[in-house]
Nucleic acid binder design. Sequence first.
RNA 1: GGAGGGCUGGCAGAACGGCGAUUGCACCGGUCUUGAAAACCGGCGUCCUUACGGACUUGGGGGUUCGAAUCCCUCGCCCUCCGCCA
Length: 426
Amino acid sequence: MLDSKYIEENMDKVRGKLAERGAEIDFEEFWALDRGRKEIIKKVEKLERERNIGSKKVGELRREGKKEEAQELQEEMKRTSVQIKELGELRARAEEAFRNFLLTIPNISHDSVPVGGSDADNVEIRKWGEPKDFDFEPKDHVEIGKDLDILDLDRAAKITGARFALYKGLGARLERALINFMLDLHTNEHGYTEVLPPFMANTDSFIGTGNLPKFEEDLFKIEGTDFYLVPTAEVPVTNIHRDEILKEDELPIKYVAYTPCFRSEAGSYGKDVRGIIRQHQFNKVELVKFSNPDSSYEEHESLTENAARVLELLGLPYRVVLLCTGDMGFSSAKTYDLEVWVPSENTFREISSCSNFEDFQARRASIRYRPKDGSKVKLVHTLNGSGLAVGRTVIGILENFQEADGSVTVPEVLVPYMGGVTKISN
RNA sequence: GGAGGGCUGGCAGAACGGCGAUUGCACCGGUCUUGAAAACCGGCGUCCUUACGGACUUGGGGGUUCGAAUCCCUCGCCCUCCGCCA
């Protein structure tokens, strides 16, 4: 959520910035809602003042034994009270309409973000590693998984439906090994605190991160409750500190969390239907930071590096891409995507998305800190990034490290997590 | 699922339905000091207003009342006990 005062004072900039990302804001409506809200607030508060003074006076008159005067004033205040109640309802509606309007406006991009309409305008920042030159026809992960009997998509479809996976044997072990490896790396080497949050969260939490009210169709809701399955650990973890005032000394707070992620994938019918690239349920290790606003962009860079380190240790070729205005998520001010090399597609595919949300989520979720110098409490900046998406990491490993004989070499760093297994083969 | 107790400011903890929440601790600033501590003074939630001011805020929402932290209803959460259960 943007600061309404900021919008008022920087109308042209806001208009331009939002246009860059393909979002239009109806300023006529904004002004109308804002003006309406302020007018009604003024009226109500004037009446409330009268009532407060009047009521106090009633008490005084009674104590002085002036019963009749008290009675008279009481009658008058009763009428005032009725008016307040009526206007109060209008006020509530006006404020809600204003807030709802603000909740549907996306974040403003950082000045370093390139302007563009689609992923074609994203900017490659750097590349790491060399895609392997296979001297045989490489298979895709579906074939590899089937041939090694570690991935059974047909039976998963029987259990649930399309876009679900059943890992078996060393496939299941590989998934678990990756989760543990990533958690150990980020806690031991990068200073994150491990958390294991609920896999469902309530409406307030989803509003806090910006997933609601606008993107409900992307979520699975639990019938008969106020709970949704989390589409990313970002939701529960960012909301750990919702409605809190943190100490400046505590910042930055860094969490790493493993959760499964559940996404309805509405609107992606027919896209990535083969394999486990796009699933209704997948595992992810997520990095989340709560930062001092002054240093959030440094924290963004280091968070991205922390995620990239996973790929480097695994030996998977990747590139870093700076998303353009048109390709960024609703809540983000700046996003780097990490893309892993996928031999079967002869291209890079997103495996991590690292964003700085500045105070956009913090304002929605009311996450603030108390500056050391005693000045007014301020909103923190929130950041997060996948560290990494586990299913897609499995794709990377199976496809990049496949051998001519159909086996897959286990990256050295994972061997201890695989119980000493160095090669997955029949 | 049943019975009971609770929810107040960053924390602790008061407040017969009536001058719009007493106090302590923590934190920040100032005075004092060579420096620090102590002491003293001030500050330390949100909104409206150029300002002066004003309104709101005792878990959320609603009700009773001239007036609600206080009474009633409802939802949420925490604690204790019973039942069931991985």
